[in-house]
């Protein structure tokens, strides 16, 4: 019955547990320990997901759903440590990381994305299916207009954000004239505060100093 939580926890509003495993704590553990811990975590996650499903079925709130996040975080950290060890081995022995290779390539729309390579028995020049399935090429003429529009959209969003930030800074200057200017600059790096300060909108309803 390890698919379910302990019976005492079924009726509880919250189940208190500790935090997730952190990377430095996992680094001092042997491969065997990590292997065991992985399956402990996997079983725990399975149990939590089962319980979540069960509570959903019964229209009850699932107590302490952050447990799932904690287990997940532990598993991500554990995998990172394992990969770190493997990378060290491969770099020492072969001079490569041994990780799954990938590259930035334009797709059918001419936009770059991270292409994760996969293992094939046939070399690429002989693999027609792969060439046809993965559109790792694009028509420059056809995509040019689209890319222009797309970049314009990105630019407009950026500009809108910049103007919004500037107006917010004006509002802040109006309300808090004795503000910490360094903190303001740190929070809104795109705004030229020295310039904006002289504007009428930045002055509040009080006698300026």
């Amino acid at each position: 019955m390890q698919f379910f939580d302990e019976k005492d926890n079924w009726e509880r509003d919250e189940v208190r547990v500790g935090r997730a495993w952190r990377i430095p704590e996992l680094r001092i553990k042997s491969n065997d320990d990590l292997h065991k811990l992985w399956f402990v975590l996997l079983k725990e996650r399975n149990m939590l997901m089962t319980m979540e499903h069960e509570y959903k079925q019964k229209f009850e709130p699932f107590p302490s759903p952050e447990r799932l996040d904690k287990v997940n975080e532990s598993m991500v950290n554990l995998e990172e440590v394992v990969r770190e060890r493997n990378r060290a081995y491969f770099e020492l022995e072969t001079g490569e990381t041994g990780e799954r290779p990938g590259r930035l390539t334009p797709n059918a729309l001419g936009m770059n994305y991270w292409y994760k390579a996969s293992e094939h028995v046939v070399p690429p020049h002989a693999n027609g299916t792969w060439w046809r399935q993965k559109h790792l090429w694009y028509d420059r003429k056809e995509c040019a207009q689209f890319l222009t529009y797309y970049r314009e959209k990105l630019f407009l969003a950026k500009r809108k954000q910049r103007i919004r930030d500037r107006n917010h800074v004006l509002g802040l200057l109006r309300r808090f004239p004795d503000m910490d200017m360094e903190a303001l600059k740190e929070q809104y790096p795109t705004v030229d505060i020295e310039r904006v300060k002289r504007w009428k909108k930045a002055t509040g309803h009080f006698v300026p100093k």
């Binding site: 553990k29 042997s30 320990d33 292997h35 394992v82 493997n86 020492l92």
Partner: peptide, 12 residues
């Protein structure tokens, strides 16, 4: 805090 790790020239 128990240290069980010992470096080896092996992958995981």
């Amino acid at each position: 805090t128990k240290i069980t790790f010992s470096p080896k020239i092996k992958t995981f």
